[in-house]
Design a binder for these strands. Structure first.
Lengths: 340, 340
DNA sequence: TTGTAGGCGTTATCAA
DNA sequence: TTGATAACGCCTACAA
């Protein structure tokens, strides 16, 4: 069947040990021997069994990531790009990437993490879409299991993360809208348990304060980070007697859903109504009109997270364990006009 | 550290063997014993080591899927949904899903498959975005490695797949456009090595013939299945002296890019120009105007593929190994108007 | 510089 | 009904 190290050794009339060491680059192997081993192993198509190696070395050479699916039609481009970053980086380090899917805070989610941790199936885990009080953080920390996160949690546990300063970003966005003449700026958020919601919301409030707009609770709606969620929430906002002249979506998908709602009631986005989002994925560039957004470096974040995780797993110190990046405000036609 | 079967056995003063069999549901275990074992194992948080089990059983309990990334900004919603389907189904069967990323026909792609096959890291592989002559099919078949595919290849090798009858679908779409008065119907395709291109192209040609439109090579452009590819290709088409009144994109992203190009030259999609795509992801529902598309059941396809793969791995016969589904033509505002 | 041997945690075979 | 034992394929002290 498949060729094992034993087959290679037999063919060369060497011991398994020597073959193993030759391939792993140990110094105490005669150059000639090493050459023979390398050549033969390749010729025979030998690849070490991952399972055997894992068992022996007690590590998996794999990292895990659980996608926060919100249903069967899960098409957030944020995550495509995030996974691309994780996958590329994992492959570059000769690691496997294990992916599972589970709705946030579901029983399925718990089972997945438990399995990965207990069965030692992965060496470390990447978390995203953090919650303020995140059971995953507690669980992994208690089990002493290496993990890194995209965003932080509000807990006593310290862990490495990369986060975007969304608060500053959203405040900047509100200032931009204020400068363009908007006074009724609405906000479509996400469930309050998510860290991203709390921070972006804070940015929204901060921005309002900075431009001297009184906060109006009627202009706030909650979505679920999907296009449809944004669509439904925007429908309500646009049905108000005093409707907003600008809508900020907590992410691009929410904003894209809102754009659709606006069109359906006959409003021209970029003239009658301003709409902006957050994430800066490709999709936001191709909407009509192109969507103003706060762009975050998704791919780079994923890449960097994997690298941090690897160091963490190896027990090496991280020179930076709390990285904070600024999102870039990209002003496009959806808000690039003066209101009134 | 982590609790092994040995710990459980010791605690219960039983042999490892008995514990193992009790947990695996063998019949020759006293009910009382099994109860004790189950309870204690759970209480101690015992989870079998995946690596040890793999080594012993000689299977990985994992399946693999390589994402055909086309760069760092990889955000095709098709694949989000596809992965969601794979992941959910894998989890439901207590399987791991291994994901890697590589551009089609790259050296990286070859390395990934070689590693998975040789190191027996996965029990089977799901292929997608098939090519007419697909080295993966050849390689996996030669190595007797189980795989299933989304779409087929034009090769002598027989393998299980699910495919969409895109040809019929696209022909239907062209007829729809013809019925609405279009005579200059353009097509933005993908590189010819992909099976999907050849089939959708054939559907386009078939449709033209059916409605009696003479094929005009000037109305054909090639994209790369991304929004930007569609955008650039459409720019060229729309710059023609005799520009098309309708554009068909080989997939939704291509069509979405084309919509943007149309807007930039001042054309109103859904009035001056018809545009349609293929895939039927959420994104196409929220464009302006909503995009006519051929919807394929992405999630269900992924789910079914995993189930087929499992049977295949287990050596069970598949009652259907070549499944062909029809995409559904969803007519939306982007084409739902009479031209001229 | 090379080889011997033990064990990583399971499961399967065989015996008791 | 239970237990002792031998692998699965690899790595690594330690011995030669």
């Amino acid at each position: 069947m498949t060729v094992t190290i034993r087959d290679v050794a037999k063919r060369l009339r060497l011991s398994i040990t020597t073959v193993s060491r030759a391939l792993d680059g140990y110094a105490d192997v005669a150059p000639r021997t090493r050459a023979r081993v390398t050549r033969t192993a390749r010729a025979m198509g030998y690849v070490p069994s991952r399972a055997a190696r894992q068992l022996r070395r007690q590590r998996a050479d794999a990292i895990g990531y659980v996608l926060p699916a919100s249903g069967p039609h899960f098409t957030d481009p944020f995550f495509s790009e995030f996974i691309a970053g994780l996958g590329d980086t994992a492959t570059a380090h000769n690691l496997d990437l294990l992916i599972s899917i589970a709705p946030p805070d579901s029983a399925a989610e718990q089972r997945i993490y438990a399995r990965w941790v207990q069965a030692r199936q992965v060496d470390g885990i990447v978390l995203s879409r953090m919650r303020l009080r995140d059971w995953r953080v507690k669980y992994l920390a208690e089990n002493n299991f290496p993990f890194v996160a995209h965003g932080h949690a509000r807990m006593r546990v310290d862990f490495p993360y990369i986060e975007l300063d969304s608060q500053t970003g959203f405040a900047q966005l509100v200032r931009h809208l204020g400068a363009r003449g908007h006074r009724r700026i609405a906000y479509i958020g996400a469930p309050a348990k998510f860290t991203l919601q709390v921070e972006r919301w804070a940015g929204y409030r901060q921005g309002l304060a900075e431009v001297g707009i009184k906060f109006d609770p009627a202009l706030v709606a909650e979505g679920d980070l999907t296009r449809t969620g944004g669509y439904l929430a925007a429908q309500r906002l646009l049905a108000l007697r005093q409707r907003p002249s600008a809508i900020i979506g907590v992410n691009d998908l929410t904003a894209i859903g809102a754009m659709r709602a606006a069109r359906e009631v006959g409003l021209v986005v970029g003239r009658d109504l301003a709409i902006a989002g957050y994430d800066g994925t490709d999709e936001a560039e191709h909407t009509d009109p192109p969507l103003t957004t706060l762009k975050q470096p998704i791919y780079d974040t994923a890449q960097r997270l994997v690298e941090m995780l690897l160091k963490h797993v190896a027990g090496e110190p991280l020179n930076e364990s709390h990285i904070i990046w600024q999102p870039a405000l990209i002003i496009r036609a959806s808000t690039d006009f003066d209101f009134k």
